[in-house]
Write a protein that binds this DNA or RNA. Structure first.
Length: 418
RNA sequence: GUGGGCGUAGCUCAGCUGGUGAGAGCACCGGGUUGUGGCCCCGGAGGUCGCGGGUUCAAAUCCCGUCGCUCACCCCA
């Protein structure tokens, strides 16, 4: 048997319906905040990601689905969205659009990693990108939007982690100081041994208690923020406070993409195992220029859809669908049911019937197991009288309704269940 | 890339100190007479015991390899 590729999951009912609900809710919130949808290719030139995410990052160094196409070009399945949003933004001259450019994008991303709980090779993100303003009010708004979406889909308990990485100016001084500190001490774990040379900031992320101990007294990024960055960060915290948003300052929140500047944030939830980040994001003020565009700032976030679905409370079981099942007895009734089936569908109702000549009992059983709201029963006597028996499966009430106006009355009842 | 756990019907699993024809629950199909679901009863279908090799008179049960799943590390959504 041919199976799905490692790390790629099939999404089946009823999960697909829950995904649709979540996406619908997200779209509604994006609309309120003034965002418009972008649908971009899954494949991009490899160079785009190498230049934006950073050639030394894990994503680029060892996690990309990269191959050469028949023409000999190196192409890559997108591992994240921001880089290509900026690419499309520049390619289509969207910088000329009025005001802050606000886009959202929902779709699959690909990273060649060893799968585990909450981590797949093809995973899905709900992305938000706002380009063209460095105002801290925008940072706060973006975070508010993220929390709004999460609340709207029913995710209750989350934790917002917040940090500021400062601008390149702040980072130069800080990194120098940090490296001095790191190389001044010995006994780091092999990973940190490597990190202190390649990406010193990441040492802060180490999970080893030993390394965390060694970090005691290490310089803190917050102390190195320049006046502008410090003011920017303070203003965001002030605004979040005003909007009653609980957050936790996490001076060690770094993030594995090189383009982040100033604000970074992450939302975590319990129940996800080791990969507990449901969403993450931050500001990327140098990225657009880095990719050959104007010196415009930007900020965004990504929600990990699989992780989000994982922590959402389960939907109430036993809920019946807005579905009708037509049951018939006899050939004449069968033909009438066939016609009625089409009429109901024309009226916008979801309707099914059995084509396989099952017994009435069997048809009723099917209706029940399909979670239909009601079974519409047609037999000889009903045909003679021009009516249908409608049995509501939840409470077994049964009524006779005129066939002529069946669609209308059923539609009304389904929309306002008694 | 590294390490641990696990691979028996569609699903969840039992069976594994090697030895009567490979099981249960759920799900699926049919039946319990004359036109009506959910409960109950009866019957049925469904499995190369992941795959390959080895030990043995005999392996789902032991050993090796391999593939896969899973959790964790690295890193991230």
């Amino acid at each position: 048997m041919i199976r799905a590729i490692r790390g790629m999951r099939d999404l089946l009912p009823p999960e697909t319906e829950r995904w649709q609900q979540v996406e619908l809710a997200a779209r509604e919130l994006f609309r309120r905040y003034g965002y418009q949808e972008l649908r971009l290719p899954l494949l991009e030139r490899t160079e785009l990601f190498a230049r934006s995410i950073g050639a030394e990052t894990d994503i680029v160094a060892k996690e990309m689905y990269t191959f050469t196409d028949r023409h000999g070009d190196s192409v890559t399945l997108r591992p994240e969205a921001t880089a290509q949003v900026v690419r499309a933004f520049l390619e289509h001259g969207l910088a000329k659009a009025p005001g802050v450019k606000k886009y959202f994008l929902i779709g699959p991303m690909f990273r060649y990693e060893r799968p585990q709980k909450g981590r797949y090779r093809q995973f899905h993100q709900i992305n938000c990108e706002a380009l063209g303003s460095d105002a801290p009010e925008l940072d706060a708004e973006v975070i508010l939007l993220l929390l709004d979406i999460l609340r709207e889909v029913g995710l209750g308990q989350v934790k917002l982690l917040l940090n500021s990485l400062g601008c390149p100016g702040c980072q130069v001084d800080f990194k120098a100081e940090l490296k001095l500190f790191l190389f001044d001490r010995e006994g780091w774990c092999p990973d940190c041994e490597r990190r202190r040379a390649v990406n010193a900031l990441r040492v802060f992320d180490c999970k080893s208690a030993h390394c965390q101990g060694l970090l005691q007294g290490a310089p803190a990024l917050v102390d190195f923020l320049c006046p502008d960055c410090a003011r920017h960060y303070a203003r965001i915290k002030e605004l979040l406070g005003r909007f009653q948003v609980d957050f936790e300052e996490q001076p060690r929140l770094v993030r594995g993409l090189d383009y982040y500047t100033r604000t970074t944030f992450e939302v975590t939830a319990a129940g996800l195992g080791a990969q507990d980040a449901v969403a993450g994001g931050g500001r990327y003020n140098g990225l657009i220029r880095e990719l050959g565009g104007p010196d415009l700032p930007g900020i965004g976030f990504a929600i990990g859809q699989e992780r989000l679905m994982e922590v959402l409370p389960p939907t109430a079981a036993g809920a019946r669908r807005e579905l009708l099942f037509l049951a018939y007895v006899g050939e004449a009734a069968r033909d009438r049911a066939l016609a009625l089936l089409y009429e109901l569908r024309q009226q916008g109702l979801a309707a099914l019937m059995d084509f396989d000549h099952r017994s009435l009992k069997s048809q009723m059983s099917l209706a029940d197991r399909l979670q239909a709201a009601a079974a519409v029963i047609l037999g000889e006597s009903e045909l003679e009288e021009g009516v249908a028996q409608v049995k509501w499966l939840a409470d077994s009430r049964q009524e006779r309704l005129p066939l002529a106006e069946l669609a209308g009355s059923l539609a009304a009842r389904l929309r306002a269940p008694a």
